[in-house]
């Protein structure tokens, strides 16, 4: 790879973000811890009855993961904007959308992948029937990158504004409604012994579209945010 080529740039940026995450690996544990705490609260609030928990398990895991991803998203671009790295990225002779895509990928690896790993544990705590667990993991593998991509666009839009986590939640809600519906729908269908491939396919279609469009939208939004 020649330095300065697009592939070298992507590799350098990915490596940078992963190194940074590794140097602060305590932060990687935070979303996982958060998800564990939220999932633990549900049995206390609703009672430990296994049939009730089994009915809500899929939905609870998805909402919990969604909130954990939302919390971690806020810092996606902020650090780079504050220390001037974003200016360096924008002026680099590379397509900004691709670089942004690399940042989203690094973010997904460091924040969503650990959540997917603990998801079976959460599902087990909430008595999700074992046959539905693989479907849950499968749905999460498709849904979490979709959430990261959609969230990244909104984070980019709020990047130039005053700090506001609530605003991000308000903006993300309409975008993640379809993701939650299809992801949780697949698990619910699997639990009832119905075919679950259709909602998974919709998630896949959404992800394919978001992989192409979201980095472009993100780059455009960042240009607006840096235009001060």
């Amino acid at each position: 790879m020649t330095p300065g080529s697009t592939s070298a740039a992507c590799a350098a940026l990915l490596r940078r973000d992963l190194t940074l995450a590794w140097r602060r690996r305590g932060d990687i544990a935070m979303p996982v811890l958060y998800a564990l705490i939220v999932a633990t609260l549900f049995p206390f609030a609703l009672g430990p009855e296994p049939t009730l928990l089994a009915r809500i398990a899929g939905g609870v895991v998805f909402v919990t993961v969604l909130l954990a991803v939302l919390l971690s998203l806020d810092n996606l671009f902020r650090a780079d904007i504050e220390d001037g790295s974003m200016e360096q990225l924008m002026l680099a002779p590379q397509p900004l959308a691709l670089l942004v895509g690399m940042k989203i990928l690094a973010h997904w690896i460091t924040s969503s992948l650990p959540l997917i790993v603990v998801a079976p544990l959460l599902a087990g705590m909430l008595k999700l029937p074992a046959p539905a667990t693989p479907v849950l993991v499968f749905a999460l593998v498709l849904a979490t990158p979709l959430l990261s991509l959609l969230g990244a666009v909104l984070v980019a839009l709020t990047a130039g504004s005053r700090r506001s986590g609530m605003l991000l939640a308000l903006m993300l809600l309409p975008l993640c409604v379809p993701v939650v519906i299809f992801a949780a729908g697949a698990v619910a269908a699997a639990q009832e012994g119905l075919p679950w491939i259709a909602p998974i396919a919709w998630l896949g279609a959404g992800l394919a579209m978001a992989v192409v469009l979201a980095p472009l939208a993100c780059a455009a939004a960042l240009r607006i945010a840096m235009d001060t």
Binding site: L157, V177, I224
Partner: peptide, 29 residues
Amino acid sequence: VLLFIYLGVIGLYHSFEDRRQGARAASFL
């Protein structure tokens, strides 16, 4: 959900110091 989108647009517009920048970000939303 449509109401939430409207509220998100209004919120984003007003969260910027610079009105035009806020308008551009919210237009994008």
